[in-house]
């Protein structure tokens, strides 16, 4: 079943995964990663210069994956391009069949390896959702018509783990009112915050109108958790979580059990429509996870 259908009918939990960044090379590399990840998940997210590092563009990788038969979610961030370039990317990718857009504000340039870059943010995340929804309805922001327009599936992201909680709940509502049909949540290690956020968006109707997909990150050791806690804006990893992995004799297994518990918890919450996986292990753990929870096309 397509990602689009699952978002609309939510017949079963959805599983999506972040497609690894591509740094040049040839299309063979995209194909290799796709062969590994593709069969396991319902759709893959193609990132747009994640953490403010330049990579092969979102549009180029999205088109390559589309041509391989993938269900692609093309992430679009507001940091690097103005409204003209962003609209051109969305309409251009749609021409190749890429019809699912995930709109993000994007990390600041200072998060990346070229902090001297000019930051753009001509649009912000909620505005981009509205602009993409306009393109889906056949109109550029100027009012000019898109030729033979195709309907897009537009989604966004929200971070339940960054304060203030009540604003996050309202902001999710704003994004859905602006046209988002799904929200992929940022990674977090405080389950009580996810619970509070989900309860809030169940109460304000967001979960009826959009598929909510929390994220888990597959890591191998406590070093990765420490790195996220220290270096990544908006992510806090509590010390007891780091200790759980650090004090284990088998850190890769303890890391997996941590993710397993997170997935179990997330899927138990009312309004959660699935799970998004970011894989920093690059081993067979994605396959293990989808198998353990009977997720994805192989188990349905």
């Amino acid at each position: 079943m397509s990602f689009d259908s699952l978002v609309k009918n939510r017949a079963r939990p959805i599983v999506t995964a972040e497609f690894p960044s591509i740094n040049g090379g040839t299309l063979d590399q995209v194909a290799r990663e796709w062969e590994r990840l593709g069969p396991l998940v319902d759709a893959v997210n193609v990132t747009d210069n994640p953490a403010a590092h330049a990579h092969s563009s979102n549009v180029s990788v999205a088109i390559a994956l589309q041509n391989l038969g993938a269900d692609v979610i093309m992430q679009v961030v507001c940091r690097d391009k103005n409204r003209l370039a962003i609209q051109a990317d969305i309409v251009g990718a749609a021409m190749h069949g890429v019809r699912t857009i995930c709109a993000l504000t994007g990390d600041d340039v200072t998060a990346g390896d070229e902090p001297e870059a000019r930051r753009v943010f001509d649009l912000d995340g909620p505005q981009l959702i509205s602009v993409a929804t306009g393109l889906s309805q056949g109109t550029f922001l100027s009012g000019r018509k898109v030729t033979d327009h195709k309907e897009l599936l537009v989604g966004g992201v929200e971070n339940p783990f960054a304060p203030p909680m009540q604003t996050r709940i309202k902001r999710a509502r704003m994004k859905v009112d602006a046209g988002a049909k799904f929200l992929q949540l940022q990674i977090g290690y405080q389950p009580e915050m996810l619970e509070e956020f989900m309860a809030g968006i169940v109460a304000n109707g967001v979960t009826q109108d959009a598929a909510i997909i929390p994220t888990v990150i597959l890591t191998k050791n406590s070093r990765a958790l420490n790195f996220m806690n220290d270096k990544v804006a908006g992510i806090v990893v509590p010390q007891n979580v780091i200790d759980r992995v650090a004090e284990s004799e088998d850190q890769p297994e303890a890391s997996y059990q941590l993710v397993r518990d997170s997935v179990e918890h997330a899927l138990s919450l009312p309004g959660v429509a699935g799970i998004h996986i970011t894989d920093f292990r690059h081993d067979d753990t994605v396959a293990r996870l989808v198998s353990d929870f009977n997720l994805g096309p192989q188990h349905n």
Partner: peptide, 20 residues
């Protein structure tokens, strides 16, 4: 610093301070 017009980005720190 990101000239956002629709509320806080996802980078707000635990203490409510700015990502940038």
């Amino acid at each position: 610093p990101k000239t956002l017009r629709n509320g806080p980005c996802g980078g707000v720190r635990e203490n409510g301070n700015c990502e940038v």
